[in-house]
């Protein structure tokens, strides 16, 4: 469906509940996005929530000013499962009949948004970092080519589903308030239940090294695995230093591609580093307030993986490293083994 008149846009926020029944920070950020957009378009917005029990979540945002609240609540919708999630989202959309659908870019929502958009003959965008509306046009900003190229796009087609990445909007805060939500569905058809969620696992050595809510990201580069000035590799020392730093600072750990692709000579010493830790290239571009890169030389950490790190510092032996220059706020030209050992010592005090 094409919609020429932008002023006709109706906005819908769709969110899922967390295990404890509340809404995640990411969903509350998306709520801010929807609310802001409604204000800039002088229109109203509706909210749809799905999950095992949506009451708590709806109450959590009861004072957000939504025109309408919709709910898909029931045991079938407890787990993140494409078929039931898409059934819920489709149901909420069809009930609300909005032209703009906003959701948080969580793994659960990102999985279903494009498919549902297709079902209802709409279009979808994921990894959106901002949405701007004016009287004449609605634009979305997102990254292409692994955060290397930034694009501002627009579409005339509606409905337009947009998944907004976390970290771009301030999470909505407000008092709890009881709301009356319109129930859209309470169970899903049997065909949607061919899959079952059977568990949640932490891969790797068991060390929890990825902490999305940490203030600091430590990025370890392949330099930790290379021969040092004495001509030998100090893998065990590197392991001790990195893990020591993580436990003392509470930082999340990122690694360059070379670091997570280690050959078997070094794999054991760095077994706490899995592909899930990788940033840049085929890894993630996590969002943290601070980032400390150690022993990195190359594009991944500094150019792509660091895109969403606010304050950046690097410890590197190459003063002219073109990857750190212009990308980091401070570059310490020094041996990271010595510096980080000292940092650990100071953090222990």
């Amino acid at each position: 469906m094409d919609q020429g008149e932008l002023s006709m846009d109706k906005i819908l926020l769709i969110a899922h509940t967390e295990a404890n029944g509340s809404l995640s920070k990411a969903s509350l950020e998306a709520l801010t996005c929807a609310k802001d957009l409604a204000a800039s378009l002088s229109t109203t917005f509706a909210v749809g929530v799905f999950g095992e029990n949506t009451a708590k979540a709806l109450e959590q945002i009861g004072s957000c000013g939504a025109e309408k609240y919709l709910s898909v609540s029931g045991a079938d919708f407890k787990d993140a499962r494409y078929a039931t999630d898409s059934y819920a989202v489709e149901g909420i959309y069809r009930k609300a009949q909005a032209s703009i659908v906003i959701a948080a870019g969580t793994s659960r929502m990102n999985r279903v948004i494009p498919g549902v958009a297709h079902r209802v003959e709409g279009v979808a965008e994921l990894h959106v970092s901002s949405i701007a509306g004016s009287a004449t046009e609605l634009t979305a900003t997102r990254w292409l080519y692994r955060q290397r190229i930034e694009a501002v796009i627009t579409r005339a087609s509606r409905p337009w589903f947009l998944g907004v990445d976390s970290g771009n909007y301030t999470a909505w805060t407000g008092s709890t308030s009881a709301v009356t939500a319109e129930s859209v569905a309470t169970e899903a058809p049997a065909a949607c239940k061919r899959s079952k969620v059977v568990g949640l696992e932490s891969p790797g050595s068991g060390e929890q090294t990825i902490k999305p809510d940490a203030e600091l990201l430590m990025v370890a580069g392949a330099g930790w695995t290379k021969k040092q000035a004495d001509g030998t590799v100090h893998a065990q020392e590197a392991r001790k230093t990195i893990l020591g730093f993580l436990s003392k600072s509470g930082a999340s750990l990122g690694g360059s591609k070379a670091m997570v692709d280690l050959d078997s000579e070094n794999r054991e010493a760095f077994n706490f580093m899995t592909h899930l830790n990788q940033i840049g290239q085929t890894g993630t571009s996590p969002r943290h307030q601070k980032g400390l890169s150690t022993c990195c030389h190359g594009e991944e950490p500094h150019a792509v993986g660091w895109r969403f790190i606010n304050e950046r510092r690097a410890v590197n032996l190459d003063a002219n490293c073109g990857w750190a220059r212009g990308k980091a706020d401070v570059l310490y030209v020094a041996d990271a083994f010595a510096v980080m050992a000292k940092v650990n010592e100071l953090l222990s005090k």
Partner: peptide, 10 residues
């Protein structure tokens, strides 16, 4: 899924 975890489904 979030937090460096993996959801297992059948």
């Amino acid at each position: 899924v979030e937090g460096g975890k993996q959801q297992v489904s059948l």
